[in-house]
Each structure stands twice: as C-alpha cells, then as structure tokens.
C-alpha cells in the first residue's frame, strides 16, 4: 500500500511566495557576512584525529629494527589486493636478526589500489604495519604511486613497542643455551 505523506496546506504568505523568498534572502544575506567555514588547504592543515587511517606504512621498533616478518597476512586480507610481498630469509650469519628468520625482500603497496580500510594494520601479528597520519600522496606516474619497502619505512618511521617479542625469544634462547650445554 502506498504511503501517503500528508502535507499541511500552505498559508497565504507561503502561497504568495514573495515573503518566503524574502525570508530566504535574509538567510543568504546572513551567510554573506558570516565567516568562512572552509580551510585554505595547503597553508592550513586539518588536525588529524586519533585513529585516523592515512597511508599504510611499515614501522620499525625503537631500536630501528625491521618488525615485518613477511607473513603475508596483510597481502591476504587486503580487499583490493594492493599489497605485494616477496618474502625473504634472514641469513643465519646475521647475528642480531637471524633468530627472526624471515623478513620481506620486497614489500609494495599500490596506493592506486589501496582503499585505506586498515585491515592490514588490524591483521598484522607483528604490529609492523600502521595507517598513519599521512593523507596526501601524489605522483606523475603509476609507478610512483607504488610505495616500495624503502619508501614505506621512510613514511612509517619508528613507533613504540610494548612487547619486544623477538628480543625476549632471543634472551630465552641464550639463557637456555648457557644453562643446558
């Protein structure tokens, strides 16, 4: 059954139209002298709220070490398939990192595909990928819009780490190594 919207009958002043137009013109005139509500962008920048989802970046731990272990979960979860990782192995002779075993050889995020959904940050088991405050990204070519590993670390910088999971693991291995053999 159609739903009928009951409309109130128009008053005389409404039907004359002109009083209504004049009232409207009063409103627009007020706006004419009201201060601007826009932001003059390149000079003025908006305050970025907490939890803002900007450009996805790779971060390092406070000791400047790579956190990503190239588990490729972000690549898997990425809805537009913007992430492309080439996994690599950390050689056994790299004393401080060998126990992590795995690190990305190449890590690319195609910002022409990225939809800033934040699922990669959500899924990351190593807290290595974060959508940070950067929101303005430009380039002249498609290739420029693909952030490679170096660029991702440059954008990401260092974030505090609560766990130092791999350090704990290493110290446990060393403690056991001394105790057992």
């Amino acid at each position: 059954m159609p739903y009928v919207v009951e409309r109130k009958p128009l008053t005389l002043s409404e039907r004359l139209y002109f009083p209504q137009i004049l009232a409207g013109m009063r409103v627009t005139l007020k706006h004419l002298f009201a201060p601007n509500v826009t932001m003059e962008y390149p000079e003025q920048r908006p305050a970025i709220p907490v939890g803002y989802r900007g450009v996805p970046t790779l971060v390092k731990d406070p000791h400047g070490r790579e956190k990503c272990v190239s588990c490729q979960l972000c690549e898997f979860v990425c809805p537009p398939k913007a992430i492309r990782i080439t996994p690599g192995e950390i050689p056994a002779d790299q004393a401080d990192r060998a126990h992590v075993e795995k690190a990305p050889k190449e890590f690319e995020i195609d910002m022409l595909r990225c939809i800033y959904c934040g699922l990669c940050q959500e899924v990351c088991p190593e807290e290595a990928i974060f959508l940070q405050n950067q929101y303005s990204l430009t380039g002249y070519t498609r290739a420029e819009m693909v952030n490679d590993k170096a660029r991702l670390y440059e954008l990401g910088g260092t974030l505090p780490d609560r766990h130092f999971k791999w350090d704990k693991k290493k110290s446990a291995a060393e403690a056991r190594g001394h105790a057992a053999h």
């Binding site: 706006h31 002298f33 009201a34 601007n36 509500v37 826009t38």
Partner: peptide, 13 residues
C-alpha cells in the same frame, strides 16, 4: 566572489 561568500568560502584567491 559573492557565491563563495554566501557559501562560507573564500572564492577565487
């Protein structure tokens, strides 16, 4: 300019 002012923006500048 007047359109901009009425819409609360600076207009061409």
């Amino acid at each position: 300019k007047i359109s901009a002012a009425m819409q609360g923006r600076p207009g061409p500048n």
